[in-house]
Design a protein around this nucleic acid. Sequence first.
DNA 1: AGTGCGATTGACT
DNA 2: GTCAATCGCACTA
Length: 212
Amino acid sequence: MTAADPRVLPAPIARTDLPVSTEAMARWLIGKSLVHAHLDGTAAGRIVETEAYVPGDSSSHAFRGPTPRNRSMFLEHGHAYVYFIYGSWFALNVSAEPPGTGAGVLIRAVEPTVGIPLMQQRRGTDRLLDLARGPGRLASALAIDRSLDGMDLCQGAPLWLGEPLRPAGPIGESVRIGLSRETDRVLRFFEQGSPFVSGPKRLNALPAARSR
DNA sequence: AGTGCGATTGACT
DNA sequence: GTCAATCGCACTA
C-alpha cells in the first residue's frame, strides 16, 4: 500500500470540529491536510501558512457585501471560496463564520504529501519547495479552480480538509502579504521554520514574526 | 460603457 | 533584489 492509496488518505474532518471564528480557523488549519481527489489523480498537502480575512476587514473581498464572485465567503464555515486573480491564478479560502457573515481564511501554502509526481506535472517543476508555496502555486498543484467554488470541505471528495498527518509545530504570526489596506493587522499564521512557507524572510524570521 | 486595479507569479538584473 | 503581464471584477457615470 502506497501513500497515494485512497484508503490511507487523511479522513475528512466533521464541521462540528471546526472553529467558528476566522482567526481561530486560520490558526487551527495549520498542520491540517488539504486533499483533492480529481479525475487526473489525487493530490494532498499539509497546510503550513494561512491568512485570516475577518468580518469588517476592509481588505477582505467580502467587505462590500455579497456579489456573484464572493458569495461563498458568506456560506457556513467550512466551505470553499475560490477566486481568480491577476488574470492567471486561482486562490482557495475556507469560509469561517456562521451563514450570512462574510469572512474567510486564505490558504497560502501547503507541504506536498500525496501525489507529488502529479503536482510536479501540473506545476512544470520538480522542485519540491516550489510546488505549493504561495496561493496561486498551491491552487495549480492541487488543480483548484472556480468549479470548486462553494463546495463543502467537510463532505469528503472531491475537496476536503483532513486530519493532520503530523501535528503542527510552533505557530508563527505576522502581518499579511500583498495588501494596501489594513497593513498592520497580524492575521497571517504559519508553521515556524517550515521551508514550504511563502513570504519574505523578514516576515518569517524571529523576532519580526512572533511565535506562540 | 469605460476604467483602474488586484489576497501573484515567473522572468530577469 | 526588481518588475511587467494579464483579465475579471467592482466602481463610476
